[in-house]
Design a protein around this nucleic acid. Structure first.
Length: 484
DNA sequence: AATCCTATCAACCGCAATACG
DNA sequence: GCGTATTGCGGTTGATAGGAT
């Protein structure tokens, strides 16, 4: 978009170069056509590689890195210019669903496209989707990935990642316990991809959109709603109230365009492929519903057999999308006031809390049937096994792990009141009494996902490891201390 | 017309992996 | 095996254009 770059004449450029060499500084900033010409000429004569030599031999006052980047991203003859075609967009989405933020790998699958290009495309697209509260992945991509995963998954490959390239879905395994929600299907079907929604004219849609009827036919929420937490919460009230009253045999119909928009703002996990992890979808937290910096790495998508064995009722087919966040948007058949409170104010943390609370109350509640949790499975959840699974298989470089950690840190930092949240956790769990420390021995620490020394900063912010782990500990402690 | 806001793009930075001596 | 250089990757930033107010 930087169209106004002035192209210096060769003379001017040479002059500038001379001056810069005198001052021993490598030039930064936008490349001029003269520099491009020099670089192209050099590569023609000497081939790619050895980029530091470019500066030495061609007189370009650019560091090797810069030269390489310029060549790779702009000067390479095989580059495809122009906007992504719908097919390419589609491919990117699919690849991202599989690979996460592996831009270079994605670029390798898209001839003529660069990682930078794809990354930019994705990031701006994510922004748009986040604003619109729309899903990252269209349902068919979810399905596709799901199917791929179903077909390709096996324990052996999980434990022995020999052929990463041949089955991307097997790699970067990172597991989060997932909970099954029958309502999710309803949500997907009715809330999100309702014809009403799709018929909303795309107001501020970016360049070409390859997913008509999917994510790219998006409706930007009215501006006055964007970034307005109070509005959001207020509308959440309405929605949850509505949800409590409605039977979900009926498609959700919004009565106003804003409602319709709002249904898309529901911070759900729609469109996020299973295994993309609840933590990720929790980027759509109502605590920061529509704006703010996000670390939107969307990881690869996988389960482990362990998970299946432990969590999935064999008699019930896997839902298309599984996410803790689905709690937030899952229309409960019966929801207590406290639930609504949680929903209104929650992000990931509260979502998990909500689930934990729900678990707890479900035991005492004769209305268990309304819960979509598979309590038998959940209560059998072996924490230690889980931890060992984490430790055994979590690749600190895995997109999933990274993403999860990002999401975690994002949540704790964005929400800005982690200590409050912790208190909140404790007060809700009620099993801590403010004195007991949850059993952290059984709880995977964030370092387990990230690897040591990776706690530094995310987006310039210090990760709040102790808080995150404490909260998670509190949550898991709930499971352990309540009689499992 | 001025200002603000957002999207987009290009480039930089830091880190990790790999190659090389 | 070790240190250094090079390359590759992903995240982030800054500049700009263009639309909205």
């Amino acid at each position: 978009m930087r169209k106004g770059h002035s192209d210096l004449s060769l003379v001017e450029e040479v002059s500038r170069r001379g001056n810069m060499r005198e001052s021993c500084h490598l030039k930064k900033g936008p490349w001029t056509s003269a520099e491009d010409a020099i670089l192209v000429d050099y590569v023609k004569k000497n081939g790619e590689g050895n980029w530091n030599a470019v500066q030495k031999h061609s007189g370009l006052s650019r560091c090797g890195k810069s030269c390489r980047l310029r060549w790779a991203n702009h000067l390479r003859p095989d580059l495809k210019k122009g906007m992504f075609t719908p097919d390419e967009e589609r491919r990117i989405v699919e690849l991202h669903a599989k690979l996460g933020n592996k831009w270079a790998r994605m670029a390798a699958e898209l001839p003529g496209r660069t990682d930078n290009e794809i990354k930019n495309f994705w990031n701006t697209r994510i922004k748009r989707l986040q604003r619109a509260g729309l899903p990252i992945y269209p349902p068919d991509v979810c399905l596709q990935v799901n199917i791929s995963q179903e077909e390709g998954y096996n324990v052996a490959s999980f434990r022995n990642q020999d052929s990463f390239g041949s089955n991307l879905l097997q790699s970067d395994a990172f597991e989060l316990p997932h909970v099954e929600f029958e309502n999710l299907e309803h949500n997907q079907q009715y809330f999100f991809y309702s014809p009403e929604l799709l018929s909303i004219p795309p107001k501020t849609i970016g360049p070409s959109h390859g997913y008509d009827g999917h994510m790219f036919t998006m409706a930007c929420p009215p501006k006055h709603l964007q970034g307005s937490v109070s509005n959001y919460i207020s509308m959440t009230n309405q929605l949850t109230d509505f949800a409590c009253e409605e039977t979900y045999d009926e498609p959700y119909k919004s009565s106003s365009p804003y409602d319709s928009d709002f249904s898309t703002n529901d911070p759900s996990s729609f469109g996020i492929p299973p295994g993309t992890d609840a933590l990720l979808s929790s980027n759509f937290s109502p605590t920061e519903p529509l704006s703010g910096p996000m670390n939107m790495e969307l990881p690869s998508y996988q389960y482990s057999d362990y998970q299946r064995d432990s969590w999935v009722n064999p008699s019930v087919p896997l839902p298309l999308v599984e996410s803790v966040d689905s709690l937030i948007q899952s229309p409960p058949m019966k929801r207590a006031k406290s639930d609504i409170f949680t929903l209104q104010n929650s992000g990931l943390l509260e979502a998990v809390l909500y689930e934990s609370q729900k678990l707890k109350s479900s035991k005492d509640d004769s209305c268990q049937q309304s819960s979509t949790l598979m309590l038998d499975d959940v209560t059998d959840f072996p924490l230690k096994d889980c931890k060992s699974e984490f430790e055994a298989h979590c690749d600190s470089n895995s997109p999933s792990a990274d993403s999860a950690a990002s999401a975690l840190s994002e949540h704790t930092t964005v929400s800005g009141s982690s200590s409050d949240e912790l208190q909140f956790v404790e007060s809700i769990l009620g099993c801590n009494d403010g004195n007991e420390t949850p059993n952290q021995m059984d709880i995977p620490q964030l370092d387990d996902f990230l690897g040591p020394g990776q706690f530094g900063h995310i987006n310039g912010r210090v990760r709040e490891k102790p808080i995150v782990t404490d909260v998670i500990a509190a949550l898991l402690g709930e499971d352990t201390c309540c009689g499992h």
